[in-house]
């Protein structure tokens, strides 16, 4: 039933660490400032928070941390506009307001016993990182695990150190591609959906998790479907304007769905008919 506290009030969190991932993207590690509770921030992989910066605004941002380490709340943010640019100026010791966690989760449990193919474009790797951490911690429960990641340029690649670690594992296939490259890049150039062609897919025993720009997700779904995967085994994370995160403001509506409370993660089968409607 309805929560009694005011769900629109942000709670203060202190920035414990700032990591500059790329020129425009940074990661905050946050700790809860109110001393009530044990400081844990439990969440499900794929959920998001509403992050508030003093006097500037509040935006939805996925949690990018490892769910097994709930003492630190982790967010990875790309500076694109007024609020995210204000966030980029914040330093260790500064405070952010947090409401959440909200929304649906990646099907990490449902995927147990299956192969998993994780496909990320750009900042879309951040919302998938908790799922990757969780799957790798329980690696024995899954079959083949692949991560396909696309960035604009080699300089835009997120979580480089971690990607190298993941790539070094024998039990995970990691493929990275960039849209454009100059200089020393020796890796793939091209779009993410093209990488799908190079992965082994057992369509009846695979779960796909896809996050990135809508156009990229569109082509990934087509490619996965061409390879025999059913739409209810492909999960995507959707994005719409959000002012409340809790089903009250109406902004995130996507046909009958509220992205904030019915999503952001959907089995593609649930939104397939909406996905093709122009300007929905």
């Amino acid at each position: 039933m309805a929560a009694l506290t005011d769900p629109m009030l942000p709670r203060p969190f202190r920035i414990e660490k700032v990591t500059h991932e790329t020129a425009d993207t940074f990661t905050f590690e946050l700790s809860q400032q109110q001393a009530d509770g044990d400081g844990r921030f439990d969440f499900a992989c794929g959920q998001f928070n509403m992050l508030y910066t003093f006097g500037t605004g509040e935006i939805p941002v996925s949690i990018s941390g490892d769910p097994a380490k709930p003492q630190r709340l982790v967010h990875t943010i790309r500076a694109v506009g007024s609020v995210t640019r204000a966030m980029k100026k914040l330093k260790k010791g500064d405070t952010l307001g947090v409401r959440g966690p909200f929304g649906s989760a990646w099907p990490v449990q449902q995927a147990e016993g299956n192969d998993v193919i994780i496909i990320a474009g750009g900042i879309g790797l951040a919302p998938l990182r908790p799922a990757i951490c969780s799957i790798l911690q329980n690696r024995e429960k899954y079959g083949h695990v692949a991560l396909l990641y696309g960035a604009r340029t080699p300089q835009d690649i997120l979580f480089e150190k971690e990607l190298r670690e993941w790539r070094g594992r024998f039990d995970m296939q990691v493929m990275i591609t960039v849209d454009h490259a100059v200089g020393t890049w020796k890796g793939n150039i091209g779009v993410v959906p093209d990488l799908i062609k190079r992965v082994k897919i057992d369509p009846d025993n695979t779960i796909a998790m896809v996050c990135g720009p809508e156009i990229m997700m569109r082509f990934c779904v087509i490619e996965l479907h061409n390879r025999g995967m059913e739409h209810d085994t492909i999960f995507v994370s959707m994005e719409r304007n959000m002012k409340c995160g809790i089903g009250l403001c109406g902004h995130c509506q996507y046909g009958p769905e509220f992205i904030c409370k019915d999503g952001p993660v959907f089995p593609f089968s649930k939104i397939r008919t909406l996905f093709d409607i122009y300007e929905l």
């Binding site: 309805a2 929560a3 809790i246």
Partner: peptide, 8 residues
């Protein structure tokens, strides 16, 4: 009022 989050 009657959803998972209410406007108090």
């Amino acid at each position: 009022r009657d959803g998972p989050y209410a406007d108090p």
